[in-house]
Simulated scan of single mutants.
Amino acid sequence: MTVRRSGSPHPPARSLATAAGILLAIVSLLLFGLPGTAAAATTAAPEPTHPGQDWAGSEIAKYEGGAGGRGITQQPSLRASVHGVDVSSHNRNVAWSTLWKSGVRFAYVKATESRSYTNPYFTQQYNGSYRVGMIRGAYHFATPNTSSGAAQANYFLAHGGGWSKDGKTLPGALDMEYNPYGATCYGKSAAGLVNWMKDWFATYKKRTGRDAVLYTSTRWWKKCTGNSRAFGRTNPLWVPRYGSSVGELPAGWGFHTIWQYTSSGPTVGDHNRFNGAYDRLRALANG
């Protein structure tokens, strides 16, 4: 009978099984990452491919506008309201002095989208509106499937979305509307979208002290958030509706703050009315 010596090149079966288990674990880490990271890796969407074509109302007009989303061609007759516009890179260099002479007194300017895009015309639009005397603010076009709410709020703040108590700067706005790149609700559940927005708003408020404005349509809000009431008490509502009245509001709001009544105004940009007199607009800016 042959006795195997210590140090034999043939390890016992248990050692082979252990080695195989270790090798399998290493291969799994290489393929799938650490536990808990695989889901995040598979759910994150690529960064936007045409952010210059996305602005407040660009998708609302497609789904809800009718007649190309132009809405009414004349300013609505509203007592104690202020005329405003919103612009983005598709408006290029804006003739702010012309808009001022036409009665426009406030503006919202797209600053960012997701966590990769900044409006190349932002400086001309944001500073230009300020120089002619307008009260202006910046907004962020949300893509909740590409990164967290906090990440996108911080990106917005780093690229023009800040706030200062100078009487001329409106709180930042979050644009929540139909996904221009796929699934209407960004592949998220109603609770998932609400939590994403809570993350964005909390981050913005922590860094600025202000509750940001929410831009959204009632139809999209009902479809994608289940008509959540989570933000009505804290976040001013900027609602698009291209008709002769604001119509039904999302749940939680008893009134709107800004009404976007057309997506292609007679001069430039989308046209809006602030729901109140000019001194109330100044109060919103001052916080």
Rank of each mutant, 00 (worst) to 15 (best):
G276V: 06
A251W: 01
Y278H: 07
V194N: 06
K62T: 11
A191C: 01
A183M: 08
A20I: 11
K206M: 08
L30S: 10
T234Q: 09
V109E: 04
L214N: 03
G103L: 00
A277K: 11
D270R: 11
V85P: 05
V104R: 04
D54K: 08
V268E: 14
T208I: 06
S97P: 00
G149Q: 08
T267Q: 11
H90N: 12
A25G: 14
G65K: 06
A251T: 07
R105P: 04
R131W: 10
G162A: 03
A56W: 01
N227S: 12
G265T: 07
D86L: 09
E47S: 10
P144G: 08
R70G: 13
L24P: 04
A41L: 13
Q75E: 15
V3H: 14
K101A: 12
T2S: 15
E59W: 11
Q74S: 14
P250S: 04
N127L: 13
G68T: 05
A111E: 00
P12Q: 11
K222G: 14
G103R: 01
V87C: 05
T49I: 12
A202I: 03
N145K: 12
F106P: 08
G66D: 01
G269I: 04
L281M: 05
K110N: 03
T184R: 12
Y204A: 05
P48Y: 02
P120G: 00
R233V: 07
T49C: 04
S102R: 11
R241T: 04
G276E: 05
D86P: 08
F231C: 00
G187T: 09
M134K: 04
H10K: 15
A107H: 00
G167N: 03
V109A: 07
L30H: 08
R241K: 09
S28N: 13
K110Y: 06
G66K: 05
A80W: 10
L281G: 02
V3S: 09
R131D: 15
L23G: 13
F231D: 06
D54N: 14
L174E: 06
S147P: 08
A61R: 11
A67D: 13
R14A: 12
K165A: 15
A13D: 07
A13Y: 07
T262H: 10
K198G: 05
T203F: 03
K223D: 12
A40C: 08
T216C: 12
A183E: 10
